[in-house]
């Protein structure tokens, strides 16, 4: 009978599944391994301290005189992310609230569809649009127009759909009965939002915020195109800056030896930031499901 062969097929299948799964999950390990392996020369010969104490970012001068100050890039990454999250979080939430509580059905669907489409637009298009539309406007305010503010605005646009979609999914989980309860008490929409909706949705909103932050930290193309890419710690929103990601994109093409290794160090730093955010998010998700 055929059944004997079938159990053998099942065994082969199971090993195939396990093999593929191990392969898929080993990618992360490979990434960490190669980041570490490539940054090790820099970490060993230059040391972490010099990424802070060096006077400047001069990665390809005469041998032995290179300077590797990463602080300005790190500052640019953190500031642009912070700015984008500060705008996109409330805006994303309001957009989700609009879909669920304010908009007539047709408008809500339209808004939802627009947010979905915004989420699907590639970062290079956002960057391009920022460059040809946003930057000329900012240029009139403060030349050269490619600056931190441009980066923040473009990043805001990019992470807004992520936050809006997740916030919307969270709002959808609020039991109808609670909303009806609030309505029965004659509460105004704003009181209902503040008293019932926001407290219940808070954990989900925080997760949305973390995911948005993650996306902003890792974004390359858009900030590369609109931020001006000058290595400096910005003193105002109108200063051009260069983020960690943009720095890698700009210099990987020609970087060799020590310089290349330092770029991998900045990649490692990005990875560490992202893993931290994911860890926070997983931790948070777990504590939410426990309640």
């Amino acid at each position: 009978m055929k059944t004997r062969g079938a159990t053998r097929n099942d065994r082969i299948l199971l090993w195939g599944l396990r093999g593929a799964s191990v392969l898929a999950s080993s990618i992360v390990l490979l990434i960490v391994y190669f980041l570490l392996a490539e940054s090790l020369p820099a970490l060993r010969r230059i040391g972490i301290a010099r990424f802070v104490t060096d006077g400047d970012w001069l990665p390809s001068t005469a041998e032995g005189e290179n300077q590797y100050r990463l602080v300005p890039m790190l500052a640019a990454t953190l500031l642009s992310t912070l700015g984008a999250v500060l705008i996109a979080a409330p805006a994303g939430l309001l957009s989700a609230v609009f879909c669920h509580f304010y908009a007539p059905k047709a408008l809500a669907t339209l808004q939802r569809r627009i947010v979905e489409l915004l989420a699907g637009i590639p970062s290079v298009i956002y960057g391009f649009w920022g460059l040809v539309t946003l930057v000329p406007i900012l240029q009139r305010l403060a030349p050269p127009g490619q600056n931190l503010l441009a980066g923040i605005l473009v990043l805001t646009l990019m992470i807004l759909p992520t936050i809006a979609m997740l916030a919307s999914a969270t709002l959808a989980t609020i039991p109808q009965a609670h909303l009806q309860g609030a309505a029965a008490l004659g509460l105004s929409r704003w009181t209902t939002l503040r008293g019932v909706v926001l407290p219940e949705a808070a954990p989900g909103l925080l997760i949305a915020l973390l995911l948005g932050t993650m996306r902003a930290v890792g974004e390359t193309m858009a900030v590369l195109m609109v931020c001006g890419n000058v290595v400096q710690i910005p003193t105002s929103l109108f200063d051009p800056v260069r983020t960690l990601t943009a720095n890698i994109a700009l210099e990987m093409g020609y970087a060799t030896s020590e310089h290349r290794s330092v770029l991998f160090v900045s990649g490692l730093a990005l990875m560490a930031l992202v893993v931290l955010l994911i860890g926070l998010q997983r931790q948070f998700r777990r504590s939410v499901t426990l309640v």
Partner: peptide, 28 residues
């Protein structure tokens, strides 16, 4: 055990910035 490991590593992988994928792809 395998499923939990795979799940966790996929979560991390989904969050890796694309430029880091670029670095990794170049090195590997």
């Amino acid at each position: 055990t395998l499923s939990r490991l795979v799940g966790a590593s996929l979560d991390v992988l989904a969050g890796v910035p694309s430029i880091v994928f670029g670095l990794f792809g170049n090195a590997f």
